[in-house]
């Protein structure tokens, strides 16, 4: 049960996007459509799992002083693998994500998990942690993207919802992304504060 907690924490309590607020650049940039969000989320999750496994495996060989460069090399390798795979098997997705695929390498979530978790913990726990974080990142992305796509282009996953709705372009452009995430984080803060105060009252 305790091991399972490593998986669950990424989804809610330590959600990378809404709680720790890491890796925001891709979150906002690619959340213009749900399709992009799913693509980006799974790419990041793959890199997270791959690098977490590897770093956890070699954590005892790598001297403390050179660990950051080593982590970066391992992460960059997985990012490039994703980049090449995506170009080969999902060219359209690779086009619409553009430079944000290589940018996973500087996504603070990945290096953050390497530093805070997988460099200290055994492989199995690291995998669960990575899966939880990856999934937490993906659902946060999908949530932001659904709001933006629905309001900004009047569609969901590419299917037009209503022909009579003139979508405000604003939502799909940069300001809409910042507004959505600001309000969502506020909402999360509100819910978590409320559940906390309830616990202390009871």
């Amino acid at each position: 049960m305790k091991v399972f907690g490593e998986f669950i924490k990424g989804l809610w309590r330590e959600n990378p996007t809404f709680r720790i607020m890491l890796g925001l650049c891709p979150t906002l940039a690619v959340s213009t459509s749900v399709e992009n969000a799913i693509g980006m989320g799974s790419a990041a999750a793959f890199v997270l799992v791959g690098s977490n496994i590897f770093i956890s495996l070699v954590r005892k060989i790598i001297p403390d002083k050179v660990r950051i460069p080593c982590f970066i090399v391992i992460i960059a390798t997985f990012v490039t693998i994703v980049e090449l795979m995506m170009k080969a098997y999902a060219p359209l997705l690779s086009r619409s994500l553009g430079i944000y695929v290589p940018l996973i390498v500087v996504n603070c979530i990945v290096l953050g998990r390497a530093e805070a978790f997988s460099s200290k913990e055994p492989v199995f726990k690291s995998i669960l942690d990575a899966l939880g974080m990856g999934l937490g990142f993906t659902w946060a992305l999908v949530m932001i993207a659904s709001i933006r796509e629905l309001l900004g282009s009047g569609s969901l996953l590419g299917f037009t919802i209503s022909k009579h709705f003139e979508p405000p372009l604003f939502m799909i452009l940069a300001p809409g992304a910042l507004l959505t995430i600001g309000l969502l984080i506020g909402m999360f803060n509100h819910f978590i504060a409320r559940s906390r105060s309830r616990k202390t009252d009871g």
Binding site: P63, V66, P69, C70, V73, I74, T80, I81
Partner: peptide, 16 residues
């Protein structure tokens, strides 16, 4: 150690 890791990474990428 750094060199070894870089080398391994390059090898993996070359294959991919």
């Amino acid at each position: 150690i750094l060199c070894a890791i870089c080398l391994a990474a390059t090898l993996v990428l070359a294959v991919t």
